[in-house]
Design a protein around this nucleic acid. Structure first.
Lengths: 210, 210
DNA sequence: TGAGTAGCGGAATGTTCCGTTCCACTAATG
DNA sequence: CATTAGTGGAACGGAACATTCCGCTACTCA
């Protein structure tokens, strides 16, 4: 049972606000990682004080959001690994869920906005390991083209989340559309060789360092 | 013969600076459309005055850059339409050139940063028409899957240009790699239906309006 | 029932950032 | 030479924004 359902009166409203603020922050900073903190308050329908009562600084909020994003990302990957359907179906469903939730994109986009934190680095490593396990599974099932690296897919995921249209009410729909398109070309057998070298894990890891 | 080759002394240096400044501005604003103008000057290796002698304001510079981007984009498309090789080869080569030059991405990313201008709207319309002609050609040759709209491809192109890695020296290579991947899934016959409705031209056009 | 206070809204503050202007200097020009 | 086009970069002014502060409300709990 959530805090907001368990409590009464003032404390209950505060607990509800916890959620409103996190939701608002997710939406605002996903759209624009450099957004002012006042936008978050406005979107949450609360004053600025309600924010500062919870987080000592903007940076702390960003760190918390990033942690939350990484955790959601990891959870989605774990769910994918536990999915008992055939490898390709499970893989597609997992990536669709990640795109839907925006968890990974949030984490990656916010990664540079605060001074790093060993703890977060560990979480990132863990999420990376989970994705690699999922990747290996599809690869070993022979349904993923073998010239695409895990880092390639992570980059592609991130970029799909960057599809944007001002004022559009169906961005999510378009993102799923383009994810589906990309997934089709990721599936074995490959239609043709790709130029350039695959992205390497180190290239991605660089983001989590100072 | 260019001005810088025709002139001598002071005027010649000024003409060279024209080019340095435009090149620097392209690179800087492509990487970050909100970059300060001083970054452009630094990158061009000139002082701020050299910028303000040429453009009355930052907005004027951005407008000029956008115009330039749209013109390059249109030129690349015209070259593609004139390419006599088979439709698919010509199409791929054209999009690769557009990604390489970054012209379209520059224009799209800068589109919201200044008050619009009827003149630019016309240019955008022209470029759009050229792309649609190219699109129609590949489609009619039967090598482009028929559930993908012109606006879909424009959005995908833009997003491929957003692939980024801090400090990487091979971003261009990666972008070409992912463009190739996307192109494989754009080719007929389609591997499967796509979810969602195709992007419409109006959705894109909205960007060029105030 | 009333003093005490958690929680809050939003104005005020201090600072950083950045577009633009200004001025002094250099060297081509005529 | 005197003039001035072209320039580098410091100085200025204003906007944006994180953070702090203050006064208010309405729970809480004796």
């Amino acid at each position: 049972m959530s805090d907001s359902a368990r409590l009464d009166g003032r404390r209950r409203q505060a607990s509800v606000n916890d959620g409103l603020i996190l939701d608002a922050a997710r939406a605002v900073f996903l759209a624009d990682p450099a957004a002012p903190i006042a936008d978050v308050a406005r979107r949450a329908g609360v004053g600025i004080s309600a924010l500062y009562r919870r987080y000592p600084s903007k940076e702390a909020l960003l760190r918390e959001l990033t942690r939350d994003g990484l955790q959601r990302f990891a959870a989605a990957l774990e769910a994918g690994l536990a999915d008992e359907r055939d490898a390709w179906t499970a893989y597609c469903a997992t990536l669709a869920a990640v795109v839907e939730g925006g968890s990974q994109a949030l984490a990656q986009r916010l990664a540079g906005t605060f001074t790093p934190d060993a703890d977060l680095g560990d979480l990132a490593t863990r999420a990376d390991g989970l994705y690699r396990a999922l990747h290996r599974r599809v690869r070993e099932a022979g349904v993923l083209r073998d010239d695409v690296s895990a880092a390639d897919v992570i980059l592609l995921l991130e970029v799909v989340m960057l599809v944007d249209l001002p004022d559009s009410t169906r961005i999510g729909e378009l993102r799923q559309r383009y994810l589906a398109l990309v997934l089709q070309s990721l599936r074995a057998p490959a239609a043709g060789a790709l130029p350039g070298a695959a992205a390497g894990g180190e290239e991605l890891a660089a983001r989590w360092q100072g």
